[in-house]
Design a protein around this nucleic acid. Structure first.
Lengths: 222, 222, 222, 222
DNA sequence: CATGAATGAGTTTTCATTCAT
DNA sequence: TATGAATGAAAACTCATTCAT
């Protein structure tokens, strides 16, 4: 039931190849991704990027025009293509897998998202850093993903709610609660540690709690 | 039962006054706090600070030596004095109030921390930004607060656990879950929005979920 | 018998051209040499250098990284290449010329070194100034030149000593005495005056004295 | 025959006390002397001086107006009072001591000046450094001491010359030769080393050479 | 397309000097 | 006289960006 999902870096690299970017320009993007994740955007000089990419300083600007353009060239495909694609894959996986009950569903979803985050720590870190500085990124992402997820999730949740396995709350509230709990585990790890978490263990730890919290109460279930 | 807590900015300002810093140096600190919160550390020039503080650029360096020293002068008192004091006050409040049951306790605690965060949005933002860039801050904070909180919380939780009102999990796990959920609500608001949240409403929203999730299950309650 | 020796500035300029430094970078080095000699290292700002070199301030730092690096870029080739080369040329000239006696030898050597110093007043001045401030330069130079000179000089002196034309002292003592006397004439002129000395005149003045002082005495000559 | 001469630092300290300078101002001068000698004038900040003197930064300027004024306050008494006084003492000592012959005279004089330089290494170093940068100091000193020494020395030398013990050269030429040789020994030691020289040993080494060099030749002695 | 030297505006930092207390 | 906080001009240095080759 658990399937390997596509790594965003692979998606990113594929996206790069799909463009008309030259080899050198591609390595500029890769170097930027690495350095932005390691030291943050402001602490990375275009000279650093040129050096790691093995190109001249001029080349860094040839195609991306500005340093900000370079950041956008990294963030935009994530927002426009990669995250939506990933969200779509996730939803499709959820929809295609005939989960017997909400617990099976939740365990799958939580595990999948956690292992996904673990597989993409570097990119996550850049995103977190940039969102914290420049909240419009988060806004754009929310707009972009909001509709997509909501419609898909709404239908899934409605099913479990009708079958009395899930509390009858607004699906955005449920998502916020679930993701809040996951974020509480993920962020400290992504920011502070180099060691990935044990996905199985914390999936259990989280789900045990979530299943209680999201179980229909006597009143609401009636 | 709900009491007004001391605002960290007030504590900070008082801490500043307690030092032997001159009026101008104090205004340098205040200006830095403001600008670092608004635009981030790297995007704030010492010229900006001098201008807002109404002092010359030399003055900024006279006492704090470097720009990094200025950041430390802001962060250190938070880590060493303000946060521990705040945590102490919170624990004292929890210990002194004779809560009838875990629900009353949880509602108080959640509401208190959420309204606390709302009252200190600016400082929270700086901390979040800096922690994301420089994780050692989070490490130091964890070290500093860890022991303090754990011993105090352990005792409180043990009581509710014996009375069968709280699931029998390790208290750090409970704290992580509760704070995860809260953070899921707080961070997007602190980072993205200028409008504070409605504390009452989201306290209810959160607690309704938490109380279910943390209720002892049939097996564990037996 | 008296031959024109290569000017260090020419050697330096040639050394510069041999490197992969651009035209502008070369003019930065030349400007630094000029200004350091004129006003001293500390009293020369990087802005002064940029202006005289006809480049932007950024250019000064682009290659030499720091102002100190610029000083080193001037001093190092002198210590590592130019001075050894000059010392080598000097020794070769002494060895190849068949001097009839010690007097002819001494007159040649003294005249050569004095006119050499006169031809390189600017560079001498920088070296003197920097050595006075930072004695390690002198140490490095001594290490670098010591062995080279000693072996060559030893052989020359031994010959004149055997022929009873030169007092039987350690050759380093003789060099120190000879150079002391020369330095006594040169330094005040190099430091204080813009007018070069009359090499012939003071060569005579010095040698008349040295020949007496270094003549074997009755006892030692026996 | 060998007498202890007055240390310039003592003279300097006495000169300081003679002025109407306050205790604090005196310590400012002492601190400047120390730091200028250690690190050079340009590399010493007025803050450094204030710190070492144990006074406020304002105090450094209260009396001496500028940093340059502070340097002058150190150098001027040397040029105007201390060096002339020292030269006077030296000449008096030479005049009062009834030296049997030039050799005794020379040995005394050389030993005296060398041990004098050794006793005042710190001050010598400042003087050397400043003269190298700012030659007017040397000019002033030469003017000031020139006449004083010349008349005194002339008379002494004339005596030995008539007695056929000293070559019949201009006394300034003799002084330059003698001081050149001494300087050749002293400067490298003062600049580079912390260990004072063995005065006796090098006095012998130098005088053995000088006595030969300055001995009247057959022709000139006739 | 790629290069890398050059740019110049901007940043942090230093420091001699002033002045109200 | 002494203080030390404050100053502001100038210093060293950084860095995104341009452009001739």
């Amino acid at each position: 039931m658990i399937m390997k999902h596509t790594n965003v870096e692979t998606l990113f690299a594929n996206g790069i190849k799909a463009t008309d970017l030259s080899k050198k320009q591609q390595s500029v993007l890769q170097a930027s991704l690495t350095l932005f994740a390691q030291q943050g955007y402001e602490n990375t000089s275009t000279q650093d990027i040129a050096q790691l990419a093995g190109v001249s300083e001029g080349t860094v600007f040839k195609h991306f025009k500005t340093k900000e353009g370079l950041l956008q060239a990294i963030l935009t495909p994530f927002i426009h293509d990669i995250f939506p694609q990933v969200a779509g894959e996730f939803l499709t996986a959820l929809a295609e897998n005939p989960f017997d009950d909400f617990e099976t569903f939740l365990r799958y979803a939580v595990h999948d998202r956690i292992s996904y985050a673990m597989d993409n720590r570097r990119e996550m870190k850049i995103f977190i850093q940039e969102m914290v500085k420049n909240p419009t990124i988060l806004t754009k992402l929310t707009e972009r993903l909001g509709g997509l997820l909501q419609s898909g999730i709404n239908r899934l949740f409605a099913d479990y709610q009708q079958r009395g396995q899930l509390v009858d709350w607004d699906s955005m509230r449920i998502i916020r609660l679930v993701s809040g709990v996951m974020v509480g585990y993920l962020i400290p790890n992504i920011i502070m540690s180099d060691q990935p978490l044990d996905c199985e263990a914390i999936t259990n730890e989280i789900c045990e709690f979530l299943l209680n919290g999201l179980r229909p109460t006597a009143e609401t279930a009636s």
